[in-house]
């Protein structure tokens, strides 16, 4: 055993120094390599997961928005149709009413005009009667003056 130890130059102090070396290197690698790199890998994985999740969410959101847009459009179209229908009906109603009112007004105007016509006629007749009487008197005066 002694021979073996001498032949290989075995020395407990050297073994101890090498174990210490190992501890130092392990500490350095742990601080400068393992912890930061493993953390970085975790972080990157998290970032990628988040990115993918975000993309999925965005896609779902986009699909929702599209569906909503389509449903809104259909709804709006339907409503527009109803409104247009209503407006048409309303317009028809109104036009009938308006025509009625106009007819009534026209009738009233005609009646009025007729009335006025009659009045004017009567007035004219009256006036002409007076004129005729005046003319008759003047004629009679002239006749009398000649004599």
């Amino acid at each position: 055993m002694e021979d073996l130890i001498n032949a290989f130059g075995l020395d407990t102090r050297l073994v101890a120094i090498q174990i210490l070396n190992f501890a130092v290197l392990a500490g350095a690698l742990w601080y400068f390599l393992y912890t930061p790199v493993l953390k970085l890998l975790d972080d990157r994985k998290k970032t990628i997961d988040e990115g993918l999740q975000d993309a999925e969410d965005a896609k779902a959101l986009k699909e929702n928005a599209e569906a909503e847009r389509i449903s809104l459009l259909t709804k709006a179209q339907k409503e527009a149709e109803v409104v247009a229908e209503k407006a048409k009906a309303h317009a028809a109603e109104k036009s009938v009413e308006l025509v009625g009112v106009a007819e009534a007004k026209a009738q009233a105007l005609i009646v009025d005009a007729e009335k006025k016509g009659v009045e004017i006629k009567a007035k004219a007749e009256k006036e002409s009667e007076a004129e005729i009487a005046k003319l008759a008197v003047l004629a009679a005066e002239r006749v009398l003056a000649e004599k």
Partner: peptide, 12 residues
């Protein structure tokens, strides 16, 4: 190529 060093690794 030094048994001290490989022995240290082996002990660890």
């Amino acid at each position: 190529a030094d048994l001290n060093i490989t022995l240290a690794f082996a002990l660890i």
